[in-house]
Design a binder for these strands. Structure first.
Length: 216
DNA sequence: AGTAAGATCCTCT
DNA sequence: GAGGATCTTACTC
């Protein structure tokens, strides 16, 4: 359960900062997903920063498109994309409007609503795998493109909201190259913009980028 | 614990 | 037409 004092909503100003500053600050924060069947509450343990047009790894690197339009909007909104033909991943838009940067939510611990999540994540062999990985996290929270553009700092009824939670102590936060991003982890332009809580069992395993061979 | 391959389709070139 | 901010299953050690 979450302590009453940790249930304060994160204000929009929280997200209106450089994305590399916001990302580590999100560790330990709370995502509340309100579904018709009840709330699902998750504590963030792993995130990655993507800094808009300056970042070759970002979906916004080549400018605005129909898919990434939300990234160019105001901070505190949710950018959801569809990938590998079957999965969704979710980001929180950061920085000033137009900067097109965001934080990918990569993993977390389900602290409420585990029953609802287990029903949706049948392949998880234990509870720590329920939201261990960005697409697993999106599946656990029942997030798809229908929620693209949702305001996570909105008032009243919202499907998605961010709470202050209990931020991870600075000496527990680690950083390193981003997972599966070309350029990171190699000799080139490395961004150590993956952030996680040291020792937390819900943090996903690191996998470097590998170009996939095309079918013949 | 590690490796490998297949699934599947949207987005942009 | 190529490749992707991934996951699951199967198989090996």
């Amino acid at each position: 359960m979450i302590a009453p004092e940790d249930r304060t909503p994160l204000p929009r100003e929280f997200f209106d900062r450089p994305v590399v500053e916001v990302a580590p600050d999100l560790l330990g924060r709370i995502v509340v997903r309100t579904t018709p069947d009840g709330p699902i509450v998750l504590r963030l343990t792993e995130v990655e920063a993507y800094d808009g047009p300056n970042d070759p790894g970002s979906h916004a690197y080549r400018g605005r498109t129909a898919r990434n339009a939300v990234m160019f909007g105001p901070p505190g909104h949710v950018y959801v994309y569809f990938t590998y033909g079957m999965w969704h991943c979710m980001n929180l838009v950061c920085g000033p409007e137009g900067r097109a940067s965001g934080v990918l939510l990569r993993a977390g611990e389900i602290v409420e609503g585990a029953g609802l999540v287990r029903a949706r994540r049948r392949s998880a062999r234990n509870d720590r795998e329920l939201a261990r990985g960005p697409a697993r996290l999106a599946t656990a929270l029942d997030v798809d493109r229908a929620l693209d553009g949702t305001d996570a700092c909105g008032a009243g009824d919202t499907p998605l909201r961010m709470l202050t939670g209990a931020p991870a102590p600075a000496d527990r936060v680690r950083s390193g190259p981003r997972t599966g991003v070309a350029g990171d982890g190699g000799d080139g332009d490395v961004h150590p913009w993956r952030f996680w809580v040291a020792g937390d069992p819900t943090v996903s395993p690191y996998r470097p980028h590998v170009p996939r061979r095309s079918r013949s």
